[in-house]
Write a protein that binds this DNA or RNA. Structure first.
Lengths: 199, 199
DNA sequence: CCTACCGATCGGTAGG
DNA sequence: CCTACCGATCGGTAGG
């Protein structure tokens, strides 16, 4: 890890815990054992720190979405996207938290760039949901509201996801995805005969 | 509206837009046409402003939950809780946003009090879900994870709920609740004969 | 509710 | 990467 990455990582931890504006450059410097002003040998400004962290998190989310096989049916793509999102949050908790909680503190230019990347990410979900509805893997829900529901349920996970929680991560992601797919009208219960309750 | 309430309201708008630490007392004073230090004739400190806003929002959420008829089946109570939550967020958007986004900026004492009230609120959801599972109105989901899913989907809504959006609020809340109930294994489709697809 | 003011701290720069 | 330092602004107080 380069010195710069150490600084970014320390800033990420502090921004997560205290928030961007409540964290001073001297707080960050102290946590990497530097004098108060020596950070500026490695970075240009406090806002650059925030922008770098937020962009690294955006990279991780977009990279996860990009690994989903576009040939899959929409419902299956959605499941993979949910899984990927949960994984990125859990494995990059400080950066993901700063991305989701503090990105509005960016200046206008960096902020606009992030909005573009967020929209790009959301389009993966939206497209999977629309395809799923068209193909019948999902029910006839409203695609806009369904996308908002899924992303809301995912974007709040940084508040409670604990990499050392009672579920292991894959089990948790699978159950979370099960519920979200059911919310959108998917019929799961692969092990059960759908006719068994009919006679 | 008393002068104090005007100040609280202005502070709520600014805390929502800029965040607590990025908002100065002079920003707030300016937005209610006061001199920079005259706020202190009405309030004790900046943190008291935040605490009052957060507690007013907590009041609104708890009041909404308290109106739900405890005699209803769990699944129906959950639907009413979802509806109430969406309504509180939409009707008190600035305070609700500050409550959900900035409460961690409170000092230790106020913070602990809010955690207690949040837990109390979440117990309404948890109990409705557990009852719903036991009664069969909901499926056999994990109650902890289901509670987290519902509250995550609800707590993020301040990010996109627009009181003047394309849905009217009740329709939106109804569709949101439909999806969440389905996520937890409820069988809705009240208009359809559940046997129609069997022969 | 205003004027005048306080010590502390902020992000950042100069010069080495 | 350090020392020394900058102007600006912060939350808040005194005294009226």
């Amino acid at each position: 890890m380069t010195r710069r990455q150490e600084i970014l990582s320390a800033a990420g931890d502090l921004f997560r815990k205290q928030g961007y504006h409540a964290t001073s450059m001297r707080d960050i410097a102290r946590s990497v054992d530097l004098g108060g002003s020596s950070l500026y040998a490695h970075i240009r400004s406090k806002e650059e720190l925030l922008a770098d962290i937020v962009n690294e998190a955006a990279d991780a989310f977009l990279a996860a979405a990009a690994t989903v096989d576009p040939g899959l049916p929409g419902a299956n793509r959605l499941r993979a996207l949910v899984h990927g999102h949960v994984r990125v949050v859990a494995e990059h908790l400080p950066y993901a938290t700063v991305f989701l909680h503090e990105w509005t503190r960016l200046g206008a230019v960096e902020r606009a760039a992030i909005v573009t990347r967020r929209d790009q990410y959301q389009r993966h979900f939206r497209a999977a949901i629309e395809d799923g509805i068209r193909e019948g893997g999902l029910g006839a829900v409203d695609a806009s509201l369904a996308t908002l529901l899924v992303l809301s349920a995912l974007n709040w996970t940084y508040q409670w996801l604990d990499p050392r929680g009672r579920f292991d991560l894959d089990t948790l992601a699978e159950h979370y995805a099960d519920m979200l797919l059911r919310a959108l009208g998917a019929v799961l219960d692969a092990g059960k005969d759908p006719n068994e309750q009919c006679e």
